[in-house]
Nucleic acid binder design. Structure first.
Length: 624
RNA sequence: CGGGACGUGGCGCAGCCUGGUAGCGCACUCGGUUUGGGUCCGAGAGGUCGCCGGUUCGAAUCCGGCCGUCCCGACCA
């Protein structure tokens, strides 16, 4: 899991020289002997006086999210338009760190890296049914051909596999790439957290059957767990909605942070997106039930809080009715498969439309006021008692699973009237479904549930034959029979890993990078006039560090110490090494650990370079 | 798509109501000063006031249209 950050050692600069290192210096030879693809010899370690790191004291007025504010202030990113962001040099280094972690771990499970185009013909998208998606950018070339900008690459990769794979002997496959994704998001937000263009690592697996898919899926679980562990994030793997289309399993990787757009439900041993979470409800005390429901006058009171307070009951003692029209035959034109269902949840609960759609197994829409009036009664006063037989009653498990110790209050299907003493089963028939949204304080296995906002940093999804069938990706099995290929797709957004790390670990001074994501390991700060002895000493240490295994950025600018320290803490490299007059007096450079701003043992200035490097490397290994 | 807000040097803001030569802080340039927590002094450079049109002798300011950006919600294969 934990390993040294930065490029492999054998490719680093071989020797240190005390002559100033300039960008024009020739790079050490690299290439054919590279142990790992895509890792090149390290370039000269930058001097801040020559590096584009435009820091700002004040964040842009329209930036709200922590990562948005800090990444702009620290000079990592700049905006070009809504949802369009440029990564500046230091920001791109962090992004590349995330990318490299992902690459190593996907390679480790047998992934084969490739590259597919963003600009694509529209045919496969029309065949897969995704051409209609609003977020899909569509364009026309000069010949009038319809093109799209890919939002993911299922269509492309499946097209290639369909053409290239013939036999069961060609399977399984894990193919992946890092490629730009384009999505016409209705609302980009929070800097780099939700953009219209971003780089995604997407991998795709191809298997002979469901069992093979399960294997490839589990390999990705392992790789993803390692990726997020190495990234240093706080993260959860949660159960996710598989959607309506042929998915048989899905997980999301969530990084809790204030700017998160999702909510995760957490209990010991349990983690789920609230979209699909289930839990035992908090108990509610019901008033005694009479032998039969009794009407109560509730003039003008159509909301749960109003009725509850009139009757002096907790909101949970009411049953909320949610009439929906199930679209049994699917949303096809002229469909006659519409039928009304009455969904009941406890008054203090809310219907979760995703869970409801999953429970129904087909789409639905809320009933219109006219439909409600026709089948049941006036909106605000509807209930299950006396509902027409053709309106099926679905009772949420939070109610159905608990033996009633009294009666509930429901609408009476008459204006200005509710019923009390309603007992499910006695007074109306029902089917049990789990369709409510869980609440903080509900329990899972007796332990209370917490709900946290989180950002989705990755997802893994069993596609099954969702794409292979329409795009004709099949193979011949041992018996010469043609079978569809079973697919999975697996995405990670490196930009979100970077932004989530900023969200999770920043403090009032700025960013505090986890070791493996930091753009530089060491921020070397010199204090003192140019030409002074302390400057000379800093230059020397810079040369030493540049030759070592850790990446360093050297603040050689002619600025006061306050500004340099402030910039260093804003940028957030894990270690800060300072050399000033004080260091010359004590014989040691000061070392500060950014996380917690703790002081580490000083670095002896007269020690041999190898010892200095070793001391820093050792400290580095101990960092989070 | 619904609701709200905002567009004035690189960043943060004032000026607009009540029309009359565009201002402040930071950053930037030059000279000096200072060098272990955003030092101080002086001199400078930099702006089609988002765009188009209208009203007016005169528009950053008033009116209309458009564009852009952000926030909340909806949406998010």
């Amino acid at each position: 899991m934990a390993r040294g950050g930065g490029p492999p050692r054998q490719l680093r600069r071989a020797s240190a020289s005390h002559a100033p290192t300039r960008a024009a210096d020739p790079l050490p030879a690299c290439g054919t002997r590279s142990a790992r693809a895509y890792v090149y010899a390290r370039a000269t370690m930058p001097r801040l006086s020559e590096y584009l790191l435009p820091t700002e004291k004040q964040a842009p007025a329209d930036a709200e999210a922590i990562s948005h504010r800090l990444m702009v202030r620290a000079g990592l990113i700049r905006q070009l338009g809504a949802g369009m962001w440029t990564w500046l040099p230091a920001g791109w280094r962090a992004h590349q760190r995330a990318t490299q972690i992902i690459r190593e771990e996907i390679d480790a499970i047998g992934g084969q890296e490739m590259l597919m185009p963003v600009l694509q013909p529209s045919e496969a998208w029309k065949r897969s049914g995704r051409y209609e998606i609003e977020e899909l950018f569509k364009l026309t070339d000069r010949k009038g051909a319809d093109l799209v900008l890919a939002m993911t690459h299922e269509e492309a990769v499946t097209t290639h596999v369909a053409a290239a794979v013939r036999s069961y002997r060609d399977l399984p496959l894990i193919l992946y790439h890092f490629q730009t994704k384009e999505r016409d998001e209705p609302r980009p937000r929070a800097g780099v957290l939700r953009t219209r263009e971003f780089v995604m690592k997407d991998s795709y697996t191809f298997d002979r059957d469901a069992a093979g898919l399960e294997e490839r899926y589990q390999l990705h679980v392992r790789a993803y767990d390692r990726i997020f562990e190495r990234s240093g994030l706080r993260w959860y793997r949660v159960e996710a909605d598989v959607g309506m289309m042929g998915g048989s399993g899905a997980h999301e990787y969530m990084a809790p942070c204030p700017a998160g757009e999702n909510e995760v439900a957490l209990a010991p041993g349990y983690a789920a997106n609230v979209e699909v979470a289930s839990a035992e409800p908090q108990p509610v005390t019901l008033p005694p039930a009479p032998d039969a429901p009794e009407p109560v006058r509730t003039p003008g009171l159509t909301t749960v809080p109003d009725v509850a307070s009139l009757l002096g009951l907790p909101e949970g003692a009411l049953l909320k009715a949610f009439p929906v029209i199930a679209l049994d035959e699917g949303p096809t034109a002229g469909s006659t498969g519409e039928r009304m269902l009455l969904v009941l949840v406890r008054g203090d609960h809310r219907v979760n439309e995703i869970k409801l759609a999953n429970a129904l197994g087909h789409p639905f829409r809320p009933a219109t006021a006219e439909e409600i009036e026709r089948s049941l009664g006036p909106a605000g006063y509807i209930g299950p008692v006396g509902a027409p037989a053709e309106v099926e009653v679905l009772l949420d498990a939070a109610v159905a699973a608990v033996a009633p110790d009294g009666g509930y209050v429901t609408g009476a299907n008459r204006a200005d009237t509710h019923l009390r003493g309603v007992v499910p089963g006695r007074d109306f028939a029902f089917r049990t479904v789990d369709v409510r949204s869980v609440l903080a304080g509900d329990t899972v296995g007796g332990a209370p549930l917490e709900i946290e906002p989180a950002i989705e940093v990755g997802n893994i999804f069993k596609l099954g034959t969702r794409y292979s069938v329409p795009l004709g990706a099949s193979y011949l099995d041992e018996n010469g029979e043609q079978r569809p290929i079973w697919m999975g797709s697996y995405g990670i957004g490196p930009a979100r890993i970077v932004a989530a790390a900023v969200e999770q670990y920043s403090d009032e001074h700025g960013i505090s990078w986890p070791r493996e994501l930091a753009p530089f390991a060491i921020h070397l700060v010199s204090i003192g006039k140019p030409g002074s002895a302390e400057r000379e000493s800093a230059e020397q240490l810079y040369e030493t560090l540049s030759a070592g295994p850790l990446d360093v950025i050297y603040d050689d600018r002619d600025l006061g110490p306050g500004e340099k320290f402030a910039d260093a803490e804003l940028l957030g490299c894990p270690l800060r090494v300072t050399i000033g007059k004080r260091s010359l007096d004590s014989g040691e450079a000061e070392v500060q650990i950014r996380r917690g701003r703790a002081e580490a043992p000083g670095l002896p200035l007269t020690a041999p370079a190898a010892e200095q490097l070793q001391a820093l490397e050792q400290l580095w290994q101990s960092l989070p």
